[in-house]
Write a protein that binds this DNA or RNA. Structure first.
Lengths: 156, 156
DNA sequence: ATTGCTGCAAAACGTTTGCACCTAT
DNA sequence: ATAGGTGCAAACGTTTTGCAGCAAT
């Protein structure tokens, strides 16, 4: 058990609903907490299989949905039609996606924090969540760790 | 030809690149301009087939990509892993997605307009684009046109 | 004459589902 | 005992690809 606090949150959530407490679900949680950065459901499944965990694809997909529901992870989408997840322990942040090299840079700005609830108030909704993605290109191309890889793929 | 201005933009764009000017591409453009609201590539393909246009799926997908490149349409993603497109003639706006009923409300706010380029300047990028999605729930449930449909699907 | 584009079908991809067995309650 | 969860494989829906023929340059 990698993180007792997270496991407790999941256990409480499962109890509160009509969900059963199964070892597989905690295995998925462990794998999630170990994963640095953003990952797709299938990435996680492959990783767990490589580590000889005994889980099925269906269970991974199902469990990730539960982890979203109890706010342990967040869903993200960076425009490639693959649902990405990330650990929700760090504070809320937004993403900049580099169109040149694919890097995803996380940033924080207090300016937009209250924005969603303001807009929702105007429109008669209750804000639940938001996602702000900025698509950009890196100016300082040399400083980019994907530079060589990108260069290789360029057709001059 | 539904919109001569748009067709001219596409023609110029195709000429500028090494892309050929084919009737199919203008057929796709016409269908796009006629479509109100957001649509997936396959939605458009089905629509065109129903209207007895002679186009293939591959051509629709390919052409939509070209239309994005010449800024006639925009890619959107509302979290369901389906690439949605929309006409880019109206001015830049953002989206609020209702988690209760699936409605997508477009809104405009000057507050966030300069935000992406500011952030990019700080981080050493050049802003190209951004997308802000707010996920929310409708307070005034009666005023929602999807209310009955949603109610039907609820399990009390 | 080239070279890119088209249509078609099949493949690929991430994701969901159906089913029989299993297990937490 | 019984609902709910699991693993597996097959199905699904969207998107991409391979290829032979066609058409714009």
């Amino acid at each position: 058990m990698k993180n007792h606090q997270a496991a407790e949150i999941l256990r409480e959530f499962l109890k509160r609903g009509k969900n059963r407490i199964t070892p597989e679900r905690f295995d998925v949680l462990d794998a999630v907490l170990e994963y640095k950065g953003h990952f797709g459901a299938d990435d996680l499944y492959i990783l767990m299989k490589n580590q000889n965990f005994q889980v099925s694809r269906a269970t991974v997909y199902n469990t990730l949905e539960l982890l979203v529901q109890c706010d342990l992870i967040r869903k993200r989408n960076f425009g490639d039609n693959i649902t990405k997840y990330e650990n929700n322990f760090k504070k809320q942040h937004d993403h900049l996606i580099c169109l040149d090299c694919g890097r995803i840079v996380e940033f924080n700005s207090s300016k937009i924090k209250e924005f969603p609830s303001q807009i929702c108030q105007e429109l008669g909704f209750e804000a639940e969540n938001y996602s702000l993605n900025i698509y950009a290109k890196c100016k300082n191309i040399k400083g980019c760790k994907y530079y060589m890889q990108r260069k290789k793929n360029l057709t001059p």
